[in-house]
């Protein structure tokens, strides 16, 4: 927390949906520029952890510091006071999030998808935002799609636009929630390539994915979640070659079998 290089600092976070515990005492530190891959079978809590970091879900206890904010709360006389919607929205501007189902805004063009938030939320000048948006389109390899509507694009293209839309807010942290799980196999690499470029450019990233190839190529650390807990947190080489947890060995044997 005192480490100025820390972009994410999660302390003893717990969350349950009713009786179903989805996060059971999560601790996690991510430094600037690190790429952390989280894997685990479905229901292990990995997506919920991402959604809690970005305050799309609230937590029951513990604290999350991300991109310089105490997410969802403010400190007042050593007490934590829950923030209102508008204040949470301001914190969320510094964190980009990419979803499994892309969730592009279907009623506006690709360019407007990217420009909407910087223009309407940050009230920045249109010409300036447009230049940045065009540069982002170039970066994700889709400059000729600026006037298309999301429906006209393939899944892989939509996800690359979703990444550009998130980057337009100049986030300090990017969260990816199974970004390639909804894609046809031949489109997965075009999205992963953009993510690898992003990691090389120094972006701090937390990626929930089952793409072990990406983990090997771009991750600094690989984490396995099992039953609402983090059971393995290691460098990729150690994660794949000498995992400490029994759960990791089991997970790897299932994933790498075929």
């Amino acid at each position: 927390m005192n480490d100025t290089n820390s972009v994410v600092s999660i302390k003893d976070v717990k969350k349950a949906f009713g009786k179903n515990v989805v996060l059971d005492g999560i601790n996690l530190e991510v430094s600037r520029g690190q790429v952390v891959v989280i894997c685990g079978r479905s229901g292990s809590g990995k997506s919920t952890l991402l959604r809690c970091i970005d305050q799309l879900e609230s937590i029951d206890s513990g604290e999350i510091r991300a991109a310089g904010h105490l997410m969802g709360f403010k400190e007042f006389n050593t007490k934590l006071v829950p923030l209102k919607d508008a204040a949470i929205a301001k914190q969320q501007r510094d964190i980009g999030m990419v979803f499994q189902n892309f969730n592009l805004f279907p009623h506006v063009s690709v360019l407007e998808n990217i420009m909407l938030a910087p223009m309407k939320i940050l009230k920045r000048k249109k010409s300036e935002v447009e230049n940045e948006a065009l540069a982002l389109l170039e970066r994700v390899g889709l400059p000729d799609k600026k006037n298309a509507y999301p429906r006209q694009l393939s899944g892989g293209q939509q996800q690359r636009i979703a990444i550009a839309r998130a980057l337009a807010m100049k986030p300090k942290l990017m969260l990816f929630d199974e970004p390639t799980s909804a894609l046809d196999p031949e489109m997965i690499s075009e999205v992963l390539d953009v993510m690898i470029d992003l990691s090389k450019a120094g972006m701090t990233m937390i990626v929930v994915t089952h793409e072990m190839g990406f983990a090997r190529a771009a991750a600094d650390r690989v984490i396995l979640m099992h039953d609402a807990k983090i059971v393995e947190d290691a460098a990729p080489r150690d994660f794949f070659e000498k995992p400490r947890s029994e759960h990791t060995r089991l997970f790897l044997s299932k994933i790498l079998q075929h």
């Binding site: 799309l56 929205a89 969320q92 980009g96 979803f99």
Partner: peptide, 29 residues
């Protein structure tokens, strides 16, 4: 779609902005 609420919150829109910029324009259809 519920994902629109997630996406608009993720880019930092507050309730008003989510309604007027994302949800209502799509509901119009």
């Amino acid at each position: 779609d519920k994902g629109q609420e997630d996406a608009s919150r993720a880019v930092g829109m507050n309730w008003r902005e989510r309604m007027w910029l994302v949800i209502l324009p799509q509901a119009t259809r």
